[in-house]
Design a protein around this nucleic acid. Structure first.
Lengths: 147, 147
DNA sequence: ACGCTATAATTGACTCCGCAACCAACTATA
DNA sequence: TATAGTTGGTTGCGGAGTCAATTATAGCGT
């Protein structure tokens, strides 16, 4: 029954470790990194802020502030949507794409160092299949503003 | 390879959900709760702040601020150590113990709702045994100030 | 054409927490 | 005993993120 506490903490510390690495080496938080990552995979490198929030498990205001930083750093810029003037896209810039590539090398190395040293590949599969049952935003990526 | 991101996020959202429940129902954050829990298990209901920090994966300053709040709420109080005048104990008060008991009922119910609905007991054991390999403070509880 | 409600985004005030700098007290060494 | 280094604890500052309130736009139903 107490296993949950340890589970939660082990996880928290792993996340912090990965995040700290990303911050010191590239000046990105783990959410910065993942924002860039989601954008890089999205159609035309752009997403509505609302959709990005859902993916990152942040509130709308959290995303506003996150993107503030990425915009100031020139990694992301704004674009508006012709068919719905409420929406503002976050668009990955060329600089953002470059930054993401740089960061992902060391980040993936960090992930491996943390996880793949401790688990076999079978265990990794097992873990992922278990943990993906936890509450999570469903992965519906609405790429365009007019559905 | 992307499974890690989902793993991390699924976990983060579970933690938030549990924490939010605790906050709205009892006015405790998850760290408040666990601080009370650790204290309740410690010898004489007291711990050095440093040791508490280690258990909670917080920095020394984090614990100072955490305990500020718990002291203001009357759930914890300070005591000094005769043999080492640098150390201040955090001591669980009677009110703190009561609060913990109240909170743990609904918290444990929340944990069950989140996890035990999704996993069989075998899977839970499996998960716990896998996740406890993640980096974590070793559980040495130095109860006294003079070792 | 008109309100009514829902949705996208932003802002201000707040909480939590880490970092760095600091003080005070303990320990070890000269 | 003076001096140096370490450890326990607190404080100021700043980052990250939430909530509640606000603004602007969309899309009904009548």
């Amino acid at each position: 029954m107490d296993a949950w506490a340890r589970l939660l903490r082990g996880h928290a510390s792993a996340t912090r470790e990965l995040s700290a690495q990303l911050v010191t080496e590239h000046g990105l938080t783990i959410n910065d990194y993942e924002a860039l990552l989601y954008l890089s995979r999205a159609e035309e490198g752009r997403m509505r802020r609302v959709d990005l929030a859902e993916q990152l498990l942040l509130t709308a205001s959290g995303v506003t502030r996150l993107l503030d930083g990425l915009e100031r750093a020139g990694l992301v810029e704004r674009a508006s949507c012709a068919s719905d003037r409420r929406v503002t896209y976050a668009v990955l810039t060329a600089a953002g794409r470059t930054k993401l590539q740089e960061a992902s090398e060391s980040h993936l190395a960090g992930v491996r160092a943390l996880f793949e040293e401790r688990f076999t590949s079978e265990e990794i599969v097992q873990l992922a299949s278990l943990l993906e049952r936890l509450p999570e935003a469903a992965g519906a990526t609405a790429a365009d503003c007019s559905p």
